[in-house]
Design a protein around this nucleic acid. Structure first.
Length: 646
RNA sequence: GCCUGCGUAGCUCAGUAGGUAGAGCACUUCCUUGGUAAGGAAGAGGUCACCGGUUCAAUCCCGGUCGUAGGCUCCA
């Protein structure tokens, strides 16, 4: 028998008989850990039991590696499908991919899974894991594969095969009695999969299309060790604790009312404080960057949205027209057309550019009822909106200027992880989803890409995620505990300035069309504050906190002094209040803690006598007794600096 | 919009195998004046989401509506 030379990464090169499997090699070589789940043969992920027939470089991976974990998740999805088929034999399987730290499998079942079903499926999975079935695959011809899955009555698999490219190699994986069409690769046996948990079940459409059959999707997760699994589940718990809907209610920041309507949040005084602080920040930054503030109405005649293209490309997200004096009026979904109008109101010279208009404009979008989600997805929103009109020469600098503004904001909010996602158009959607001007699309996309590259900003590209009028940058950010949010956006509009006949007179007297950049670094108040609540877990930094200082008199003998302290602080713009209830100091402290008030000032006999305050800060063990002046100067400074620590 | 849960006091939740409801916290009043995470007592608070049906009787069963939760984005 022929020998082949195998170079093992992390171990030595060896000679092996052709036909040996990576699994056999891993068992014979000491340096290879016993917990490998998959390998890369010449950089291609490959099953451990796939025989090797030629010289190769091979890398063994355990489930802690990124690829290894993905394979483990994918194999767990199959394990789950096998359990489902055992318990519910009439089930038809569809697809079961892995995601980040999760997997799912979609099933066509007669009755949706209940909680109890999930736990019995999980139980069965553990049983199959103990059976330690070998996971093997074979390559099938298209004809054989179709007849196999037809015989198994797995019609979705047949459909999948029929839709695959002719060149695709069809693999059929088996573990015990369970057989599935799958590209693989997989872990070598079901015994490899031990530490998993089913998370939830819900509905999903076949191929994500609402016209198709409703399937039951079961989500689950799987890890190489019980410890890793626990850690992940704890993280999910932590995310739940920080849910902005929960904390928003606890801290009385906003609410929804049935009589007002879904997706139409009402901001309470506490929440409105945060809004005011964000607007003050935006105004400060925008003033410094040469923006001019404008105000525009919420209602507009339909003709404007015909011109802008909204009626053609965006109607499904707009509230239907209302009849006013026999004309169609719409409530605005975006501020751009109004800003364009302001630009066009007076003739512009190249000297006026870049012309930057900003507005915390209130917009209304008709989001499908099932898509509404706390503050994250709403129907009424206030955007940190602005439009920059500039020449082609100015474009790069302006665009990068906006990106740099993002960074400034991220620093202020302590956002450490973020990613820019460049949304490009999909040529298939030209004329439908996107304005039909292929040349301009190409050019603008290239300009944006170059601007980002020249500025040294990292980004990923995503085809099909452009706005209807141009490419855009969406900024993903991660909260302090690693939950991902899509907050800000920065978009190029190459089409609309022309539609609005926006021009400027250039130095040579000719009339030219400016480019327009839409930007909203702080997104909407709704989503941004939703993010901030989860990012800070409700423990807002002092400058953002709805309640900054609570003054707690030890008994009501000291209420007058407390009032005096309070009004002094209020004079200095500090959000202070006195807890003058007839309660013990311990109870007052407890309540202030629960309300996550940043600073408590304890005042009793000692403080009244010395004209001082005793400062008790959240998260700070040591207390300080200070003169009121010293205290207020200190926190005034902290507030002005917008310090992120609290 | 679609699928499946869920909807009881301001909040968190019990409860009723069909006979119109209960706790804790919060609130009001009184007592207490207490130095670092809950002092005590009393009181008030509900068309059991809404509309309809079955029934002698519905918060409970049935249907509809509204709201809400998990999804419907990652595609063998």
């Amino acid at each position: 028998m022929k020998n082949i030379s195998i170079n093992i990464i992390g171990a030595s090169t060896g000679s092996y008989p052709a036909g040996i499997t990576p699994l056999e090699i891993s068992e014979s070589v000491k340096e290879i850990p016993k917990n490998v789940v998959i390998c890369k043969v010449d950089d291609v992920l490959t099953d451990l039991n796939e025989p090797l027939d030629k010289d190769a470089t091979i890398q063994f991976l355990d489930a802690k590696s990124k690829d290894g974990h993905s394979v483990l998740l994918h194999s767990t999805a199959h394990l789950m499908a096998q359990a489902v088929k055992r318990l519910f034999p009439k089930t038809k399987v569809t697809i079961g991919p892995y995601l980040d730290n999760k997997f799912y499998y979609d099933f066509d079942v007669e009755t949706p899974f209940s909680e109890e079903d999930l736990s019995s499926i999980e139980k069965e999975m553990h049983k199959i894991s103990k059976e330690n079935l070998e996971i093997i695959h074979e390559v099938k011809s298209r004809k054989d594969a179709i007849s196999l899955f037809k015989k198994m009555k797995e019609s979705y698999k047949v459909e999948i095969i029929n839709d695959l490219e002719k060149s695709e190699v069809l693999k059929v994986y088996s573990q015990g009695e369970f057989t599935d069409l799958c590209r693989g690769p997989h872990v070598p046996s079901t015994g490899t999969i031990k530490h998993f948990k089913l998370l939830s079940s819900s509905a999903a459409y076949w191929r994500g299309d609402e016209n198709n059959q409703t399937l039951q999707r079961v989500y689950g997760t799987s890890f190489p060790s019980e410890k890793d699994l626990k850690k992940y589940l704890t993280m999910l718990e932590e995310q739940k604790k920080r849910d902005h809907r929960k904390i928003g209610k606890e801290l009385d920041l906003y609410f929804h009312d049935e009589e007002v309507g879904p997706g139409l949040p009402l901001w309470t005084p506490n929440g409105a404080v945060i809004i005011d602080e964000l607007e003050a920040l935006a105004k400060e930054k925008e003033d410094a960057s040469g923006y001019k503030r404008v105000r525009t109405p919420h209602l507009t005649k339909g003709a404007l949205y015909e011109k802008s293209g909204h009626l053609e490309h965006y109607t499904t997200s707009m509230y239907p027209a209302m009849d006013v004096d026999g004309l169609d009026y719409y409530i605005k979904p975006m501020n751009c057309p109004h800003h364009h109008k302001i630009y066009a109101n007076r003739p512009k010279s190249y000297r006026d550019l870049p012309y930057r208009l900003s507005e915390y404009g209130t917009c209304y979008r008709y989001e499908k009822s099932g898509e509404l989600f706390g503050l994250m997805r709403v129907r009424s929103m206030q955007m940190n909106d602005a439009h920059i009109y500039c020449t082609e020469d100015q474009f790069k600098e302006e665009f990068i200027g906006v990106c740099k503004l993002y960074m400034e904001y991220f620093k202020i909010f302590g956002i450490e992880k973020y990613e820019m996602r460049l949304g490009l158009h999909d040529p298939k959607g030209l004329g439908k989803k996107y304005i039909n001007n292929p040349k301009l699309w190409k050019k603008t996309e290239e300009d944006v890409r170059n601007a980002l590259k020249d500025a040294g900003l990292k980004f990923v590209e995503s085809v099909g995620d452009a706005a209807f009028y141009g490419p855009k940058i969406d900024v993903q950010v991660w909260s302090a505990i690693g939950k991902e949010f899509s907050l800000a956006t920065n978009q190029v509009d190459f089409a609309v300035p022309e539609r609005f006949n926006l021009t400027y007179t250039d130095g040579d007297g000719s009339s030219k069309t400016p480019l327009c950049i839409h930007r909203a670094p702080l997104g909407t108040h709704e989503r941004f504050i939703g993010f901030l609540i989860e990012h800070f877990g409700g423990d807002f930094p002092l400058w953002l906190a709805p309640k900054q200082v609570s003054i707690l008199p030890v008994s009501d003998k000291y209420n007058a002094y407390a009032d005096q302290v309070c009004s002094e602080l209020k004079k200095q713009g500090v959000r202070a209040e006195v807890d003058n209830r007839s309660e013990k100091i311990g109870a007052k402290i407890r309540d202030a803690e629960l309300q996550k008030i940043n600073i408590m000032l304890i005042v009793g006999e000692k403080e009244v006598d010395g004209k001082v305050v005793t400062v008790r800060r959240r998260f700070v063990k040591e207390q300080e007794t200070l003169s009121l002046d010293k205290f207020s100067n200190g926190i005034r400074k902290e507030i002005n600096e917008r310090s992120v620590t609290n």
